[in-house]
Design a binder for these strands. Structure first.
Lengths: 247, 247
DNA sequence: CGCGGTGTTGATCGTGCTCAACCACAGTGG
DNA sequence: CCACTGTGGTTGAGCACGATCAACACCGCG
């Protein structure tokens, strides 16, 4: 498990995820305590951050980049069970071996906390415990949303769902919650998308092409995607919840 | 939303789920506070406890029976996203409309807490907040486990997975963690099983029959199931994690 | 240049869906 | 008492969606 120190050590006060991560609700004195047990680590694209079954020495926040949680069966079938974007939390307090394999999908920087001291802080710092509960409940909702995608949607709807979810998260990370058109770089390979969606990579490729042909998305290169009309994409995803707050 | 009072009001001290529910870690004085905001409600099989989008007046613990969380698309496709057994928690604090529809799969008794006071207690009672975090993390793990089932397993493996999960939970609710054979009543219709597994009810019926024909399970009637060899069932489920602690 | 990683496209196959008939069983009312 | 009805479950025949197997395109890199 090769690793390297982050190129530039950052201070909490100018941390890009300061207001969305586990530490979001912390006061300055609580942040000071966190600073003592934290350290940054970078991982390059493709690198495994942690293997399922490994002893878990730290928990962490994703500072930049994208990481994935995956589960693998003996015969090699793989299912992604989590997509970790900046501010997301990695690892489970109170457990000392990792349940899932964590992989860097792009170059990733993580803000790691030594596990034992962090667990101690959870017990003594309600601001952290509450924020973690909030984030875990959000992840549970996301996982349940994903169960509908995996269990009941067609291949085309699955692709549209993935693009719509990523598009939405990217959009409100960059506070671009304006209505219409959104552009972003998909930071997943076709294979990773397939693992996320319970499809084969061939099917992913075909359906992405189909959505492009039908004008639902515009591709430049393989990964750079523009969604001209988010509403249209969400219809394709089967999420006709027009009542949705964003878009 | 018809309702009836539970036939016999119980006291926390002789509550069957006392040691596993949200209140598991509470001291006697904290329990006393909970008693003030709690009330029991019963629901009969098939009854809807709460509709997605409804205002959520309470959160609750399942005391007895089985309830389900489901999500439905406009065209009627349905996916179960949670199976709630005794001691499981229902509802999300800090949110005032329900995200999922909750249905009683069998006759159910719930211990309900008025939402506002309960939220207040979470903020002031670390024992409750921590237990809730723990339970939410467990549910998240279960949801992720289920994502593998939905995304990558065959119909036969899906059925075997469901039976093995229910079998395991029933077994350790009743402290029957003995090795070999397990018997239980499946409290789900074929349709509910299909909704859980992302299958059609016809496929469920066929695969259950197949598992019976192959001697993996023994059926008496439609719902009463005996698993002669749990290990065998788990192999069929593709969960060859022989290292499993139970069985 | 060849090579590996990533992605596209085509042909064929098979699992699980669809549509449909039928069965078992429990109420219910004439 | 038995016909009638509704609910839950089983079984069969045919089909379609996505998997599988395979060939090839593209691109950066040694």
């Amino acid at each position: 498990m090769t690793q390297s120190l982050a190129p530039e050590i950052k201070d909490c006060s100018d941390c890009p995820i300061r207001h969305r991560a586990v530490c979001a609700k912390c006061e300055t004195d609580e942040l000071a305590l966190l600073e003592d047990i934290k350290y940054y680590r970078s991982f390059s694209a493709g690198q495994t951050v942690m293997w399922a079954g490994d002893r878990m020495e730290f928990v962490a926040s994703v500072v930049s980049g994208v990481a994935t949680l995956t589960q693998t069966m003996e015969d090699g079938r793989r299912q992604m069970v989590g997509l970790l974007l900046p501010s997301d939390f990695v690892g489970r307090p109170q457990r000392d071996t990792a349940t899932y394999t964590v992989t860097a999908a792009s170059d990733v920087v993580m803000c790691c906390f030594r596990r034992k001291p962090f667990e101690h802080m959870i017990a003594n710092t309600p601001h952290i415990a509450h924020r973690l509960l909030e984030m875990t409940l959000d992840e549970l909702d996301a996982a349940r949303e994903w169960m509908l995608v995996l269990g009941r949607k067609t291949a085309r709807e699955k692709i549209a769902s993935l693009l719509s979810i990523i598009g939405r998260r990217i959009a409100d990370l960059s506070n671009k919650k304006a209505g219409q058109s959104i552009t972003f770089d998909l930071m997943l390979t076709r294979e990773a998308m397939a693992d996320y969606l319970g499809l084969t990579l061939e099917t992913v490729s075909r359906q992405v092409s189909a959505l492009k042909k039908d004008g639902v998305i515009v591709l430049e290169g393989k990964r750079h995607i523009t969604v001209p009309d988010m509403r249209r994409l969400m219809e394709e995803a089967g999420d006709d919840s027009d009542g949705g707050l964003l878009f």
